[in-house]
Amino acid sequence: MTRVLLRLVLAGALPALLVVVWWVASAGSTDVYWPPLRTILTAFPDVWTPERLRADVLPSVWRLAAGYALAAVAGVALGTVIGSHRRVRAVCEPVLEFLRAVPPPVLVPVIMLFAGIGDTMKVAVIASGCVWPVLLNTVEGVRAVDPVMAEAARSYGIRGVARLRSLVLPSASPQIFAGLRQALSIGIILMVISEMFAASNGLGFTIVQFQRGFAIPDMWTGILLLGMLGVVLSVLFRLVERRVLGWYHGLRDAARRSP
């Protein structure tokens, strides 16, 4: 219990310090673009009512979840195939490096031509950016499977789906989750960017509307809400990661305690 409380205190110390610094630094501000934090916090409950949360935040979260899930499935599936076969990897690697180097926001106008301006476009933009860290980390994780274990599986006749389920994916899962963690932050960024193009709702759309209407404190409340959403999603991801990779963290903790 003491360790948990200590971790909570350490995790909250820096955010609390930054809030205090922001409060003090902006307390006497008369700049219209840099309002006092007190003004922003006062406006927050008036701006983000339950109705606005349902109208703007829930659609954003749904698009993020859909694009992220699509990227996760495609990245793990393709990465497993590419990482398992040397010839496939040799053929695909130049194309993958080219596509990875193209910034996803640049693809927004192109995706709009084929997917329109609805939710399909926004989900496609999110998926197109999130898939690369998942794919590349999966490839490296599959390639790094212990050759001794791979040879033992071959000797015992463990092949196909059984080999994939019992050896490849468990061995690559720490690296896969590293890619999923990177993809989550990219997905939040692309969620906002995609909603700035021809959208009628969403966090990105609302923040831009506040900026265009010179409702600067309201704009800052949107930025704060976006940061809070990122923190919540990060905490949820860590909980899932600790649950799925409990065996991995247990082995690592045991290795640290051993002399």
Rank of each mutant, 00 (worst) to 15 (best):
R87Y: 00
A65L: 10
W48G: 12
V148H: 04
V244G: 03
G141T: 05
A115L: 11
S258Y: 15
A150M: 11
P147F: 13
S60K: 06
A150D: 08
E97L: 15
R257G: 07
W48R: 14
E241G: 06
R87L: 11
I216Y: 14
M196Y: 05
A27H: 12
V47W: 13
S128W: 01
S166G: 14
F197S: 13
V108T: 05
R238L: 06
A13L: 01
R63Q: 12
V145L: 07
R252V: 04
E51A: 15
I176K: 08
L10W: 02
A215W: 15
S185C: 01
M196S: 14
A65E: 06
R154D: 13
A74W: 02
G202W: 06
V81H: 07
L233M: 12
L135R: 06
T49W: 05
S84E: 07
G28H: 04
D46H: 13
A77T: 14
L229M: 10
P109I: 07
V61T: 04
I193M: 01
I111R: 03
V106F: 11
A152F: 13
S60Y: 06
I207H: 10
S173H: 04
M112R: 15
M1D: 06
H85K: 07
E241N: 05
L164Y: 07
V76H: 03
A55Y: 07
P217C: 13
P109S: 03
R3M: 09
G116Q: 01
R256L: 14
T39V: 13
D146I: 12
A101Q: 00
E151S: 15
G230L: 00
H85N: 03
S200N: 11
L5R: 01
L10P: 04
V161D: 02
E51W: 13
A69V: 11
